[in-house]
Design a protein around this nucleic acid. Structure first.
Length: 704
RNA sequence: AGCGGGAUGGGAUAGCCAGGAGAUUCCGGCGGGCUCAUAACCCGCAGACCGGUAGUUCAAAUCUACCUCCCGCUACCA
């Protein structure tokens, strides 16, 4: 099936993957939510009736586990995060029509109703399965409460997913040698009755569904693969008490799996919106059950749920199928993966505290790289984008046009717009339409920026400042055209930089809000008179960028220290030697890569705390599943130590046995890839040049 | 190792899914112009064997196969 182009006559709903109520928001989240927001806003300017909804994901084992660890109620724990999210999004002009959460009444009821329907339609069956159970703590252990060995590949695996090995989704009872992640107790399997959803019966439907699915290509290719490999039925229930009760079994100690009620929140949130504004204004049932355009914007890690499980649920419960799934790529920071634990991230809160306008980040995130592309964030690139495009192109054009118009005509000159300028604006509108139908937010921004660029060219080519005296009519015409272009740029860019567009709107003397404007308004004349304009964008100075880079580097370095220092040390100097402002000078530059000497001196006593020994490698073998790690057995005289070192790629492991090496022996034990490490091999540099002795020091001798 | 993404002028990117004149845009470099405007803006120039190999084709950056190299994920982190 194919879809009509946006805008259509049907109401649309744009949803964003639910943020998990478990931690602070950062620039990676924002990319998805701003993306959905911009897309929804653009649909509205095109005249499409649109609701933009999302909500917090409150359930699931991580919330339960974290709450438990902090000794608080999971509901309170999750609600706290929920409230923070609800406050943060508007600060980035991410304006949901409704933002709910999965634990509220609407969602509880609707989820149960949908499950009930699935049951009535015969899509659910009961099955006795083996569930991990901690006999000491007298607790059932769903999902991540249990870990063990993957039955498929033999790697260490979590209860619900073979995360380190073959990546397979594991059904309850599959993981072997289970033990509790909470108590560490070995778990036993007990027979329990659980509910299963016949996803396997939807293979054909889903194949067809995928054929008509729009959005980003990554959301279409991967699921096809999964279907070909054969779909498994999903276990819908879990033995725990944090979650939504299975309908009709409230008294049982069983709740619905978090991925059942999470996507239902899309519907619930729409429903709440509908109930607030009235169904005349927006009818959630029409959208979800009849003929709406459903667009899911998600992070690419949850493609499976949105292209397999969720559409099957919708179909099974007689709901409408999604029109599109747009999966965003990930964000890297200065070329490296965003890592919340290492604090290598740009936090939402932090960005605002730095005093930058949210629209700047929105513009950066939306116009740097395509939606499904991984995008790098760096303050340098941010500066370049802002100074070059927003200040130089858009802001400058707005300001020079309006200022000229204000000074010479007190506003918009009283003539019509030239036909070719009108054509150019229409062309830009066409680009926006095309971009929307391609799910290309960047295309929307580019259409606007390019139009501003055209405006700059236009004004320069016609040099109205030369014409005011000699050919006043011509001058008026040029300025009239420029004012129109300026307004059009404002209308087109409003979905991406709503505040800034609104400011322009007001400078033009327009009433109301630019977000209520239609795209055709780009061609409507602004009011005859307007006041003196001001500059809407400010340059970011180099010093500011240096400062921000330093802050980030310091933070990452600080977090890196107590993280996985063993691995870092073994790998060489992966940490931060930064502060270089251009940060791009990585490759083949050994001399420039040396870490700076530490300023702090230590005493002899502190040195003596390090028990460094001469050892001999007895066994060296790669650790399966790890790129760099090798397991070594090292003889240090008294005993043989098992050590994990990041040298798999850097040395020929077969030649290592027999080598004399230097070992930091009183390193606290660590577990890497499931292998315990009891010491640290000393090595120099990125290539892990192993240290040894030159004389005949005995094995086990202390280095001092 | 598995999975995902990528390899295009100095840097960053588009095009590639619907193959056709040696290819986009931005930053930077060089030269020039202009001054209404935020040391801006405009014009022009230099510069690329489109990662490698083989294949399909009249024709490939664009399709197929294999390979190399980068990057991310594999702590619910979008």
């Amino acid at each position: 099936m194919s879809h009509d182009e946006f805008p259509t006559d049907q109401p649309a709903v744009v949803t964003c993957g639910l943020p998990y109520a478990n931690g602070d928001l950062h620039v990676g989240h924002l990319r998805t939510y701003v993306g959905g927001d911009s897309f929804a806003r653009t649909l509205e300017t095109l005249g499409q009736e649109t609701a933009y909804v999302s909500g917090s994901d409150m359930h699931g084992t991580p919330v339960a586990v974290n709450a438990e660890q902090q000794g608080v109620d999971p509901e309170d724990f999750a609600l706290e995060w929920h409230e923070q999210y609800a406050e943060t999004f508007p600060k980035f002009n991410v304006e949901f029509d409704n933002y709910g959460h999965t634990h509220d009444e609407t969602n509880t009821e609707l989820t149960q109703e949908i499950v009930k329907t699935l049951e009535d339609e015969g899509h659910i069956y009961e099955k006795e399965i083996q569930v991990a159970y901690d006999p000491v703590a007298d607790d059932h252990l769903p999902d991540r409460y249990v870990e063990g060995t993957c039955p498929y590949c033999g790697e260490k695996a979590r209860g619900d997913e073979c995360d380190e090995g073959c990546q397979r989704h594991l059904e309850p009872g599959e993981v072997e040698d289970p033990k509790s992640t909470i108590t560490g107790n070995p778990a036993e399997y007990r027979e329990r009755t659980h509910k299963f959803f016949r996803v396997s019966e939807f293979s054909e439907y889903l194949t067809e569904f995928l054929d008509g699915l729009e959005g980003t290509s990554n959301a279409q290719n991967q699921p096809r693969q999964w279907i070909e490999e054969g779909l498994q039925d999903w276990c819908l229930t879990r033995d725990m008490d944090w979650g939504i009760d299975y309908p009709g079994e409230e008294e049982e100690d069983i709740v619905l799996y978090v991925w059942v009620d999470a996507p239902v929140e899309y519907v619930s949130s729409t429903k709440q919106y509908s109930e607030r504004v009235g169904s005349d204004e927006y009818d959630w049932e029409r959208v979800w059950k009849d003929e709406g355009e459903i667009v899911h914007v998600i992070g690419r890690d949850i493609i499976q749920h949105h292209t397999i499980f969720w559409p099957a649920m919708l179909e099974g419960a007689n709901y409408n199928a999604p029109r599109a799934v747009a999966a965003t790529g990930f964000i890297t920071i200065n070329g490296k993966g965003l890592s919340t634990s290492r604090n290598r991230a740009i936090w939402a809160k932090e960005y605002l505290e730095e005093g930058f306008h949210p629209d700047l980040l929105r513009y950066y995130l939306m116009t740097t790289g395509g939606l499904q592309q991984d995008v790098d964030f760096s303050w340098d690139a941010f500066q370049e984008k802002v100074n070059g495009e927003l200040v130089g192109t858009v802001g400058n054009f707005w300001y020079r046009s309006l200022l000229f118009a204000y000074r010479n005509y007190d506003g918009t000159p009283d003539v019509g717009v030239s036909p070719d300028v009108e054509d150019r604006i229409e062309g830009a509108i066409g680009e926006v339409r095309e971009a929307v139908n391609d799910y290309s937010i960047r295309g929307i921004g580019q259409a606007a920026t390019r139009l501003a660029q055209f405006g700059n060219e236009y004004i320069q080519r016609h040099e109205p400042w030369k014409l005011t005296d000699e050919e006043p009519e011509k001058a008026a015409q040029v300025i009239r055209d420029c004012v129109q272009i300026a307004k059009a740029v404002g209308v087109l860019i409003a979905p991406i930089t709503p505040d800034k567009a609104q400011a322009l709107w007001e400078q033009l003397g327009e009433d109301g809000a630019v977000e209520n404007a239609r795209i055709e308004d780009a061609l409507e004349a602004p009011p005859r008179r307007f006041a003196e304009p001001g500059e809407l964008f400010e340059k970011i100075e180099d010093e500011r960028v240096d400062e921000l880079n330093e802050k980030l580097a310091d933070r990452v370095a600080a977090a890196g220290d107590d993280g996985d220092d063993e691995e870092d040390a073994a790998e060489g100097s992966e940490t931060a030697g930064d502060t270089d402002d251009d940060s791009d000078s990585d490759d083949n530059d050994p001399a420039g890569d040396l870490e700076p000497l530490l300023e702090d001196r230590i005493g002899f006593g502190e040195f003596q705390d390090l028990d460094i020994r001469v050892g001999r490698i007895e066994v060296a073998e790669g650790i399966e599943g790890a790129d760099d790690l090798a397991r070594l057995e090292v003889d240090i005289g008294f005993e043989s130590r098992q050590v994990v070192a990041g040298i798999k790629q850097l040395h020929d492991l077969e030649e290592l046995p027999g080598e004399k090496i230097i070992l930091l022996a009183n390193m606290e034990p660590a577990e890497l890839f499931g292998v315990e490490s009891n010491g640290m091999i000393l090595a120099a540099g990125d290539e892990a040049d192993l240290l040894t002795t030159h004389g005949d020091a005995d094995i086990g001798e202390k280095v001092q």
